[in-house]
């Protein structure tokens, strides 16, 4: 049995909620269970956005994650907000091109990914979240890159279809970067 509990946090527009959804979609498409819970309401307009994601091969008791096993953080404010909540020995995935505040916890596995820089290199400045998505797959698993890529094809359609190939490349680069570090 596995159960991954994840919080994805960033500022509005960075695509934190989308990363969480992509993880959940991939898990469902591989026959597992998933829940995704966004922050919503007035909070949505305040500039920060985060979501709880749980993926498991069994029924999920509760969708809200208060102590994540993995936290994906896309800005300094999100690091400050969620650092203390991560489970002891848990994983912290940082967009190191956006987060420059120090990580105070010493018990965490910290995975630094210059997601924004990589996205800029690919000419897809809004695709940093896809790099982090790939990094998550390499660091924590529970879903496969195949499922992630299928989902990208499925999610980016119509006028957004032109981003699908680039987003898949970005996700693979995030995956390979972390996998090659032996994490």
């Amino acid at each position: 049995m596995f159960r991954n509990t994840i919080i994805v946090a960033g500022s509005g527009g960075q695509g934190a909620l989308r990363v969480g959804q992509m993880i959940a979609y991939a898990a469902i498409n591989e026959g597992n269970e998933a829940t995704w819970l966004p922050s919503y309401g007035a909070e949505m307009r305040g500039g920060t956005a985060n979501c709880s994601v749980v993926i498991s091969d069994e029924e999920i008791p509760f969708a809200m994650v208060s102590q994540p096993g993995c936290c994906i953080v896309m800005n300094n404010a999100s690091l400050a907000k969620f650092q203390a909540a991560i489970q002891p020995g848990g994983t912290l995935i940082l967009d190191s091109s956006m987060v420059d505040a120090p990580v105070e916890r010493t018990d965490l596995r910290v995975v630094r990914v210059p997601a924004d820089v990589i996205a800029e290199e690919e000419g897809n400045s809004r695709g940093a979240n896809m790099v982090l998505l790939g990094a998550y797959v390499a660091a924590c698993g529970g879903i496969s890159m195949d499922a992630v890529c299928q989902n990208i094809d499925h999610s980016f359609t119509g006028s957004k279809a032109k981003y699908a190939e680039s987003n898949k490349r970005l996700a693979r680069r995030g995956y390979e970067l972390v996998a090659s570090q032996g994490n």
């Binding site: 959804q21 959940a24 469902i28 998933a34 829940t35 995704w36 819970l37 966004p38 969708a63 809200m64």
Partner: peptide, 8 residues
């Protein structure tokens, strides 16, 4: 929560 969450 039930309204806003995604689930299978």
């Amino acid at each position: 929560m039930i309204g806003q969450m995604m689930g299978s």
